[in-house]
Amino acid sequence: MNIFRFAGDMTHLISVLVLLLKIYATKSCSGISLKTQELYALVFLSRYLDLFTNYISLYNTLMKLVFIGSSLAIVWCMRMHHAVKRSYDKEVDTFRHYYLVLACFVLATLVNEQFTLREVCWAFSIYLEAVAILPQLVLLQRSGNVDNLTGQYVFFLGAYRAFYILNWIYRYFTEQYFTRWIACIAGIVQTALYADFFYYYFISWKNNAKLQLPA
């Protein structure tokens, strides 16, 4: 564990807490894409298959449980909770995310570390996470104005993988035989998808103005 990875995990945890705060405090999920939340739940479920079979550390296990639990809780909330689901923008959240799932699954069967269930699911979760934010970014562009908590949620979610890239660079130079091309390339793609959001987020922060994404 190095400082970059720890910073990445904490940033990821903050993004989840900000989203939970938004939904709990405002009893609303307006501006949040249910499809992105469903994709993230699938990412964690397919990546942490070895949750009970491969114990790394208490920290590792706890964080996996937090990510799986929170993503499922948010999906449940947005689908079932009487007040929250009323605020879900169904007609705006129209990204065909099933195509993302299919494309990532096909790619994972072709490009993986080993053609085993565990490695194919792991590669699938890596590819899917890289594109999981797309429905959310599309929804933000369609809905124009972004409330603070939603903006912060997306910002921290994007920042965490950037820390992981620093972590992979650090490990590449400090550990022998450390290569993680699949995760690294997917991580770069994932972070790049946030590039324009980061730009508009920085502008709104600099001008102390409301975050506006161009339609």
Binding site: R5, D9, H12, D50, N54, I56, N60, M63, K64, F67, E113, Q114, R118, W122, Y164, N167, R180, A183
Partner: peptide, 10 residues
């Protein structure tokens, strides 16, 4: 690959 080492991250 060392499977354990390979999946030590989140």
């Amino acid at each position: 690959i060392d499977a354990e080492h390979h999946h030590d991250e989140l």
